[in-house]
């Protein structure tokens, strides 16, 4: 464990908490892509099937929290606050993300076993899972500040992981190319948003795309 990974994980945790609190406090999931949240639930489920392989108490706890929080989020969006779900703007075709991620996991993986292919699928799937949400923001042309904070925390997490991988490569000679390439793709997808966040949201303005 190094500082980059720890802060990355905390940023990831913070993102999930921000989203749950936002939905719970406002009793609304307006502006949130239910499709992205379903993809994240799929990501955590397929990745953490390795839960019986004990790494550390920290890992086990975080995995359980991520899985539970992702299902809770999906439940809030599709059941409890269904009436506030903005499905007219959540129109990204997720099959274009799920199927290629799965086929790629079958082709490029560390080991052709069920657990390993599902782990690899989760890595590829995670790298693009935010696209329905970013698509929704671009479609409506704006995002609430709290949604922006959520996206910033979620995007920062993988960027911090890249620093963690550089650190681990230099200190432990440890590296995982699949995670690194997917992590870079994931971070690049947020760049446009990061720019808007820094230039607008941090200066107190609403995140609004030029018409």
């Amino acid at each position: 464990m190094n500082i980059f990974r720890l802060v990355g994980d905390l940023s990831h945790l913070l993102a999930i908490i921000i989203l749950l609190l936002k939905i719970w406090k406002t009793r609304s999931c307006a502006g949130i892509s239910g499709k992205s949240q379903i993809l994240f639930a799929i990501v955590y489920t397929s990745r953490y099937l390795d839960l019986p392989n004990f790494v550390s108490m920290y890992n086990t706890l975080m995995k359980i929290v991520f899985i539970a929080a992702s299902y809770a989020t999906v439940y809030l969006i599709y059941m409890k606050f269904k009436a506030t779900y903005d499905h007219n703007h959540d129109t990204f075709r997720v099959e274009f993300l799920v199927l290629p991620s799965f086929v790629l996991a079958l082709l490029i993986n560390h080991d052709f076993t069920v657990l390993e292919v599902l782990w690899t699928f989760s890595i590829y799937m995670e790298s693009v899972a935010i696209l329905p949400q970013l698509f929704m923001v671009s479609k409506t042309g704006e995002a609430e500040s709290i949604t922006s904070h959520y996206l910033f925390a979620l995007g920062s997490y993988r960027a911090l992981y890249i620093l963690n991988w550089i650190y681990r490569y230099t200190t432990e000679d440890h590296y995982d190319l699949i995670a690194i390439v997917a992590g870079i793709v994931q971070t690049v997808l947020y760049c446009d948003f990061f720019y808007l966040y820094i230039t607008k949201v941090l200066k107190g303005k609403k995140l609004q795309l030029p018409a």
């Binding site: 990974r5 990831h12 390795d50 392989n53 790494v55 991520f66 560390h110 782990w119």
Partner: peptide
């Protein structure tokens, strides 16, 4: 098992 070792991150 190197795979378990490999997936020691979240």
């Amino acid at each position: 098992n190197f795979l378990i070792d490999l997936h020691d991150e979240l």
